[in-house]
């Protein structure tokens, strides 16, 4: 069996005396989707921001498997290594695409920019790769020179996904990636994500309050409440046989389809 790509131990984030999350430990393996679920204020987004290096932790360990096999704590990385992770090896899909895109440069440039950050210089190659990725996320080729402000919400989200995946990252963080979309648009984005995650064998940590999204995308699930993990396990086990009172409440709150 392979080694984990990400390992979190005893993670805590305090805002003054308020606890964002505490005592959080889990591992993520390559090619695996882990969903973090819980209601607003449960600490799931705080947790995501800490493990993706966007927020400073108060205590605990976060280790990441580098491409050369080393497994350092993120806090011990050099600035250059950290930049490499952010630009190449990791992706971050925000709930609001405007937070992850540059809204006034073209769709092609939004995707190409990540390539340039990893040293790609040939304009023709960049444009071709950007075009490939737009088609993979089902954006018509003739929209390559349009700015995302002219795109619908679903298209923007698909563009953000393309921008993240173009550098072949190994780990993607997602914060409610379908949260702001209409239900019909959600299904398309979800299906697209599901296909890409499988084809590219990505490791994903996805934060969502939507248990249907968690069921569709993830193999394992972590349930948070009040900054603590209250239950964790195989996604279908947690949803079909919830053990903790809070998980039972969450599951009981979904209308039967």
């Amino acid at each position: 069996m392979t080694d984990p790509i990400l390992s979190v131990r005893g993670l805590e984030k305090r805002y003054g005396s308020f606890i964002g999350c505490t005592g959080v430990s889990f591992d993520v393996w390559p090619g695996e989707v882990v969903a973090i679920v819980g209601e607003s204020g449960s600490g799931k987004t705080t947790l995501l921001n800490c493990i993706s290096g966007r927020l400073e932790r108060s205590a605990g360990e976060i280790r990441y498997r580098m491409r050369d096999g080393r497994f350092p704590d993120l806090a011990d990385l050099s600035e250059a290594e950290r930049r490499f992770l952010m630009r190449t090896d990791w992706g971050f899909v925000h709930q609001n695409p405007a937070d992850g895109l540059r809204m006034r440069v073209s769709a092609g440039a939004n995707v190409g920019e990540r390539l340039m950050a990893v040293g790609e210089r040939h304009y023709g190659d960049i444009r071709r790769t950007a075009g490939d990725w737009l088609s993979r996320v089902e954006i018509a080729a003739e929209r390559i020179d349009d700015q995302p402000i002219a795109f619908s919400g679903g298209m923007r989200q698909r563009l953000q996904i393309a921008r993240n995946l173009v550098t072949h990252p190994r780990l993607i963080f997602m914060d409610e990636p379908t949260g702001g979309l209409d239900v019909s648009v959600q299904a398309r984005v979800l299906d697209l994500l599901r296909g890409l995650v499988t084809d590219l064998s990505l490791a994903v940590v996805i934060v969502t309050h939507d248990l249907a999204v968690a069921r569709l995308l993830s193999q394992r699930m972590i349930v948070m409440k009040g900054g603590h993990i209250v239950e964790a396990g195989l996604t279908d086990r947690v949803l079909d046989d919830p053990r903790h009172a809070y998980t039972q409440l969450l599951v009981a709150s979904i209308p039967e389809s």
């Binding site: 396990g233 195989l234 086990r237 079909d240 046989d241």
Partner: peptide, 9 residues
């Protein structure tokens, strides 16, 4: 069946 499949704990 579900326990054997790991779907129920």
């Amino acid at each position: 069946l579900r326990m054997v499949y790991g779907n129920y704990a």
